[in-house]
């Protein structure tokens, strides 16, 4: 469990980081908090030729309110997401990431770029309709989170691109529910409820290769249906795969229940709205 040899470059700026990435012909990898990358390196499941350490790039961290959304720098640590008060849903979701040591190192940009389907931040990004800011050799571009995630651990990022930050709309009402085997584990299922511009968005993580909107559940709610029915509708929409920790049927049932709980926390579908 020791990583294979690699070259190490400490980037002083975003421009330098993407230039180095471009020059490695796809053999480069960004090192931010390292909470997913370093174990993968140690297991030799990833063998990048060059590690580009972005931790010292200035002005890439912080959470700032910007009208109806917050701007989150890519290097913002999960612990800072927990501590901030501008986006309560984000703070709640970030509390569920790993353990204190992991939250102290792990970064928002790293979690989004790693695109673990069971991770909290990708589900929140999809759930709130985030816009992800990406820098590459040709300049900056912005990608909706719903388009960024293309598969399990796969994004539409180019090999020479890096995430610099994201804009995350602040929901008027919100709910977050997660089910994991142990405290701090990756979720079996995560449910995010966010009311953005009057629309109730229901998103489920951990039950598909990418976080998915539960459109039938949203339709139930739009028609004034109760949370329990929306939960059932969400479950019926999903086609999860089973694994060591639960069958496909179990995951589907848990997803329905987590959606119901997240809706209850948001005060949606309780008959009171």
């Amino acid at each position: 469990m020791k990583c294979a040899p690699f070259e190490y470059v400490r980037a002083g700026s975003v421009a330098e980081a993407v230039t180095v990435l471009r020059d490695t012909d796809g053999e480069g990898k960004i090192l931010a908090g390292g909470q997913s990358l370093v174990p993968i390196l140690a297991l030799r499941m990833a063998r990048p030729a060059v590690l580009v350490d972005v931790n010292r790039i200035p002005d890439l961290d912080g959470v700032a309110r910007n009208d109806g959304s917050v701007r989150i720098g890519a290097l913002t640590r999960h612990s800072a997401l927990v501590a901030q008060t501008e986006h309560p849903l984000l703070a709640e979701a970030a509390r569920w990431i790993g353990h204190a040591a992991i939250r102290t190192r792990g970064t928002a940009g790293g979690s989004i770029a790693h695109a673990d389907p069971a991770a909290e931040l990708p589900a929140v990004a999809v759930g709130c309709g985030a816009t992800v800011h990406v820098a590459g050799p040709a300049g900056e571009r912005s990608v909706p989170a719903t388009e960024l995630f293309v598969g399990a651990l796969m994004t539409g990022l180019g090999e020479d691109e890096m995430i610099t930050g994201l804009d995350l709309p602040v929901p008027a009402r919100w709910g977050f529910a997660e089910f994991a085997r142990r405290h701090g584990d990756f979720a079996l299922v995560t449910a995010v409820v966010a009311e953005i511009e009057g629309e109730i968005r229901v998103t489920v993580g951990g039950a598909a290769p990418v976080p998915v909107r539960a459109s039938r559940a949203e339709a139930v709610l739009a028609a004034g249906g109760p949370a329990a029915e929306a939960g059932r509708a969400a479950a019926e929409d999903l086609r999860p795969t089973g694994d060591l920790h639960g069958s496909a049927d179990y995951r589907r049932a848990i997803a329905g229940e987590m959606v119901r709980r997240a809706l209850a926390q948001a005060g949606v579908g309780t008959g009171a709205n």
Partner: peptide, 8 residues
Amino acid sequence: ITPATVWS
């Protein structure tokens, strides 16, 4: 005894 086995 896992949650999944109890559920089953």
